[in-house]
Every structure is written in C-alpha cells, then in structure tokens.
Simulated assay, not measured.
Amino acid sequence: MRKVFQDELAQVGEELIEISRLVTGAIEKATESFEVADVDLAQDVIAADARIDFLQNSLDERAIDILALQGPVASDLRMIVGSLRMSASLERMGDLARHVAQLARLRYPNNVIPAALQETFKEFARLDIEISKKVTELLETRDLNVAREIAKDNMAVDELHLSVFKAIAADDWNESATTTVDVALASRYFERFADHGVSVARKVSYLVNGEWQSDEFA
C-alpha cells in the first residue's frame, strides 16, 4: 500500500514537470510571435493553452484523491498541498503566455511594441524564458541554488517593468492611447509571469526545508 502511495506522489511530481515544460514552450512561442508579429504562431500558443489547463485539472484531481484516500502526513502532506499551489502558478504562467500571444494576434500585422521599447521587451522575453526553464530544472532537482537564480532574474524583470512605466509617463512619450495601453498590459504580463515563477520557487524551498522563507525570494 505504501509503494502505491509513493508511486502516486511521484506521478504528481512528474505531472508538474510536464506542465512546466509546456509552459516554457508556450512562453518561447508567445514571445517570438510577439516580436515578429507572427499570427499563426500566436494562434498555436492560444490553442495549446487548453492542454496546460487540462493537465492542471488532472493533477489537482489526483492530488485531492490522494488527500482523501491516503491521509498523508508531514512531508507527504506538504508535497500534496504544495503541488496543488504550484500547479495553479504554472497554469497562470500558461495563461500569461497566452495573453502575450493574444496581443500579438490582436495587433497583427503590426508589432505591439513601438521601436523605442522593443529592446526592453526582448530582454523581458529572454528573462521570462530563462525563469521558465529554471522552474522546470528546479522541479526536477530541488536545487535551491536554482531557486535563488529565479529570484535574481525576477528582480531584473521588476526593473524592466518599472522602466516601462517611467517611459510611458515621460513628457516625450507620444504614442497613441491604444499603444500605451498595449505596452502597459504587455509589461504587466511579463512581470506577472516572472512573479509566478518565484511563487513556484518559494514552494519548492518550503518542500525542501519545511520552512516558509519568503525573505530569501523577495
């Protein structure tokens, strides 16, 4: 009976990793469609989000069944509850990748971002992709050095997010209201994507240490 329980826990962990890999694929494709105004690629991201949602629901159902039928305690209970919360963060990351793709589709054949901020958003994309890859690595290895790298990347994303809002508030900003809204939304999507990556890192740290170390990942 105990082996069955451990196999079920392992399956939950594998499903988290699978969702995380799909999220990485989504943000890679979404940012490419965003940068080059590729409507077909954007549509692929939008359609594929349903797979992430399905897997999250499946994982959550499995975790709830384990809670109800196995009565886990201590570290096993932390694993199940943490997995439920991590799956929600990963699903939200998938949603945010979809939002980026939806902006690309909405403004096709034009680029969403004006020329003056395109390099900023390329850096946003690079950092979010790195965070997503590191989330998968963290779920596979539980190496808290990776968690700290995620936190560091998130700080760089926050700085970019602040720079965007300074740019659109500056006296020399002369883009249309529509472009201004698009830029603000896109910046928020990239920033929140990174935040959810940090959320997963915090939960993995909790699984490893048994303590909530929010300061480490502030």
Score class of each variant (00 low, 15 high):
2 R>K: 07
10 A>M: 09
11 Q>G: 15
12 V>L: 14
17 I>D: 08
18 E>H: 08
21 R>Y: 10
23 V>N: 09
30 A>K: 01
31 T>L: 04
31 T>K: 01
33 S>M: 05
33 S>K: 03
36 V>Q: 09
37 A>S: 15
37 A>C: 12
38 D>M: 04
41 L>G: 15
41 L>V: 07
42 A>C: 06
45 V>Q: 01
48 A>D: 15
50 A>Y: 08
50 A>G: 14
51 R>A: 15
52 I>A: 10
54 F>Q: 15
56 Q>Y: 05
57 N>Q: 12
58 S>Y: 10
63 A>K: 01
64 I>H: 06
66 I>Q: 03
66 I>E: 01
66 I>C: 11
68 A>E: 02
70 Q>N: 12
72 P>W: 00
74 A>R: 00
76 D>F: 03
80 I>C: 05
81 V>C: 11
84 L>Q: 04
86 M>A: 14
90 L>G: 12
90 L>E: 04
91 E>A: 13
93 M>S: 08
93 M>P: 08
94 G>I: 04
95 D>I: 03
98 R>F: 09
99 H>E: 09
99 H>A: 13
99 H>D: 14
101 A>S: 05
102 Q>S: 12
103 L>C: 11
105 R>L: 12
108 Y>V: 02
108 Y>E: 00
112 V>E: 01
113 I>Y: 00
114 P>M: 00
114 P>C: 05
115 A>G: 11
116 A>N: 09
118 Q>A: 15
121 F>P: 10
124 F>L: 02
124 F>P: 10
126 R>C: 01
127 L>W: 01
129 I>T: 13
131 I>H: 06
131 I>R: 02
135 V>Q: 09
135 V>E: 07
137 E>L: 14
137 E>P: 14
138 L>T: 05
139 L>G: 13
141 T>I: 04
142 R>D: 11
144 L>T: 00
145 N>A: 15
146 V>T: 13
146 V>H: 06
147 A>K: 02
149 E>W: 08
150 I>A: 14
154 N>A: 06
155 M>A: 15
161 H>R: 02
161 H>T: 03
162 L>H: 12
163 S>H: 02
166 K>F: 07
168 I>F: 08
169 A>P: 13
170 A>G: 14
170 A>N: 12
170 A>Q: 02
171 D>H: 06
173 W>E: 00
176 S>D: 04
177 A>K: 03
177 A>T: 02
177 A>Y: 00
177 A>C: 10
177 A>E: 04
178 T>E: 05
179 T>M: 05
180 T>Q: 06
181 V>G: 14
181 V>Y: 06
181 V>H: 09
182 D>C: 07
183 V>E: 01
184 A>N: 08
189 Y>K: 01
191 E>V: 07
192 R>P: 08
194 A>K: 03
194 A>R: 02
195 D>H: 03
197 G>W: 00
198 V>L: 01
198 V>Y: 00
200 V>E: 07
200 V>D: 07
202 R>E: 15
203 K>G: 14
204 V>F: 12
204 V>R: 01
206 Y>P: 06
206 Y>A: 10
206 Y>K: 05
207 L>P: 12
207 L>M: 11
208 V>L: 07
209 N>R: 06
211 E>C: 14
218 A>Y: 07
